[in-house]
Design a protein around this nucleic acid. Sequence first.
DNA 1: TCTTTGGCC
DNA 2: GGGGCCAAAGA
Length: 662
Amino acid sequence: MSSESQPNASPHDAVKRSRFTHRQLHLLRQGSTATPLRAIAHIDLDAFYAQCEMVRLGTPRDRPLAVQQWGSLIAVNYAARPFGVTRMITAPEARKACPNIVLQHVATFREGEGGKWAYRDDSSMNISTDKVSLDPYRAESRKILKTMKEALEQWCTTESDGDTYHYTQGLSAALEKASIDEVFIDLSPLVYSVLLQRYPELRPGLQEENRDVELPPPPTTAVQWHPEDCLVDLDLHEREEDDPDWDDIVMLVGSEIVRTVRQAVWDVLHYTCSAGLARNKMLAKLGSACNKPDKQTVVRNRAVQHFLGGYRFTQIRMLGGKLGDQITSFFGTEKVSELLNVPLEQLRAKLDDHTASWLYGIIRGEDRSEVNPRTQIKSMLSAKSFRPSINTLEQAEKWLHIFAADIYGRLVEDGVLENRRRPKVITLHHRTAQTRSRQIPIPASNIIDENLLFELARTLMRQVMTDGQPWPCSNLSLSVSSFEDGVTKNKAIEGFLVRGDQAKHLNQNSRPRDSLPTLSESIPMGKKRKLEDDGIKRFFGQPARTDRTVGGPDFPSPHNSEVSGDLVPPAQVSEIVDESSAIPQYKCDRCSRSICELEREEHEDWHFAKDLEIQDRQEARDMQHQPSNPNPNASRGSASTRGRGARGGRGKPERGQMRLAF
DNA sequence: TCTTTGGCC
DNA sequence: GGGGCCAAAGA
């Protein structure tokens, strides 16, 4: 982005301006990946499993503790590390290095004791009959996520004057659970909201104003960082004495928000965590690991080059594996600083175009991957390695019982009993010399219980045995996947929301309320889920305001809403119809929609932002492809996934913008 | 549908 | 370094 590399306005300028434009600020509002003002946090629990045990057992923070799995350690708390205890060493070695250490074995299931896990004194000696359970950690993870969400919500409910409210209401932060102990948070909309409250000069001006004009400079000459913020040193040509620009202020506000989130996790649940804050996920993730434990690290835009230059690129997300090794051998270095000297053309010569341009950008600190607001789990797996290998069907079936019980218990937590969600596929993995797997559908007619899972697993096991040489078997695992929403949940949703096509046909269509599925068969399952998650989240996160029913050019018309999976609240629909004659309307010349006059400004803002995103996305497509976008359809206000061209019908509405069903 | 890869504690 | 996960791409 050229604006990022421009120096600050020089002192002789008559009127100092920011390097950033109104357009770039405005893109924060919908969490666009295109703006250099973006604020992304990565939060990582410190030695998570160890902390879980410290909390559960009530041990003091300075008491060394490690979590044991059979003879080895899988997590070591910070109090134990000065003694040389690491995950590499065995439990007896840890005891020797640190006699005072608490060595807590993970909870286990035990053969013949049903589906209940327990903490047992003798589990380390019972590797042949026990199977580890990570359930206690999953439960803590859920609590932590909930606490973080609640802390973030504090920043959404703003008591500001009506003008600011107009621009900031309904904004919230996207939270992506990256693993059992890590989350990404897109703070951009919250930061935008705070900026507009604290700096009225940033509020969108008159309609005529050119959004390419630079913002006024921040009204401060020095940023007051919190004493506990760890700041990455600035790039060589930057100086701390230089006046801050809005990207510095964005990081300041972001770090304030992150601090309250971390504080809430400590106050409520007594867990410490470390955070990284930067303009994108890649930098935030590297940042969170810089100062552990219990610290937060801020990577300002002006520090990115210096920060990344010190890394090996193999430490960057997606480059830790074979791709990173390949690149290392092609170019003879692991250092980011040296790879920076390789021109794009040379990268292209060795790597495919997508990967080459992604790599070129990523080592320069550019990463436009989105924070994917995903909370629900997509599969569940229960596994066991056998040393020595097992050799009979009887032995295998004992483990299948335990797997079935384990997974069933987790499904219950997930809501199978209430029919909220249910998996459609069950898979058995089996390892001898090679790994083989077989999968079958879970019959939709059956109620899922432990026994059904076991019988399906046994069927798969028999298939595996007739396939080839089943023994000796060194590893077995059972998993369920392809989750689908169940009857009860859809019923509940239908009370509030109907899809566009359903709204259209609501009165003609006598389809039974409890029949399934409600989503169009034309959409692959994975996409359906995301669309639905988002639709629901957005709807409930949005205060009901009938005058917010604005739309844009890419809002599918009724005929293609059929495949969009988008959701429309019926109450809204009827209210709109009722009120449309009473409220002054104007017809938007961009999209030919009738918009209520009160919403005119916002609607036009919306078109403006939309245009920018389209433009920007096009640049991004040309310039910067990721080698493997982990989730091309997950979106949060990005134009790439919204309806145009071949994928035109797949779009979903912008936050807070409801589609008319007619 | 099945296998492989990556990432993490 | 390996057991036990989870997600997604590749084939």
